[in-house]
Amino acid sequence: MKISKETKIDLFTRMVKIRTFEDETHKIFMAGKEMPGFLHLSQGEEAMAVGTCANLTFDDAIYTTHRGHGCIIAKGADLKPMMAELFGRIDGCCKGRAGSMHFADVKTGCMGSNGIVGEGMRLAIGTAFAQKYQKTKNVTAVFFGDGATGTGAFHESFNMAATLKLPVIFVCSINFYAQMTHKSVHIPIEHVADRAAGYGAPGVTIDGNDVELVYEEVSKAVKHCRAGKGPYMIEGITYRHHGHFIGDPCNYRPAGELEEWLKKDPIVLYEQKLLKEGVLDEKRIQQIKEECKNLVDEAVAFARQSPQPDIEELYKDILA
């Protein structure tokens, strides 16, 4: 598959945007004053989010997890209402009600993060059902981690999607930890994508830190789904740089493991590749990083000036 220069720059830019957003979010959260609640960050897993979403339009849907900032940014959501949401402000994409773990941006096709592990899969089959029912060619991608493969939601949803031939792409980011428990403890097989065969669907395991590889594989999955052939599973091997949540001491991680994975950081790898290929030079890379930083700074400024919701907001929109 030939990937155009523009697409390569787009893939790189989206990953940098996510990393910049999450690094800044981390800093603000640690300062302890402005960002309430819990925060789950996805640094290290950007290639899965970007390689997938770069194949989708706003009419295609995604569902993501409690660690979902990256997917939502990759899909194209505006950073300002996202940041305002993390600050719990009224101009947040969910009016400050959802926070990091539960937010959605429906106009860009981000149908929701989820505080319940695996649950995005059960909802994703419904949106895919609607896409098929309404005779669109749209697809739904659902992100989940290795931990979610142990849920009943995984089996039920995959089985239902295959039975009803629904256009769902199951995107599993293996980041090696179900919260704090290593994959070797809770998954009895080497590759969970092998399970797709049990539902009569294609399933592949790939390097989830190679953004072009993810992009190519998802493009095959999208074609498969748009052709009405039912679900497709992609398992990408990646790594979570931070702990389960911010504040997690990570005492379960063997010494040296993080350092090994930092060498395989998807953004660092791709930056080197694009430099080598001459797609970008140092100056342009610096420029992209500055542009992303500016976008994030603007988002933070936007969030800071947005008011907190009035108490009445607690009682609005319970019913349509």
Partner: peptide, 28 residues
């Protein structure tokens, strides 16, 4: 059968499907 949909015995997925479909404009 497109509008009278038989499913596997998967109550969670049935209702999850309804939520996702309703959010996308259908009335299950």
């Amino acid at each position: 059968p497109e509008r009278a949909v038989d499913t596997p015995i998967s109550e969670g997925a049935i209702i999850g499907l309804c939520v996702g479909a309703a959010a996308a404009g259908l009335r299950p």
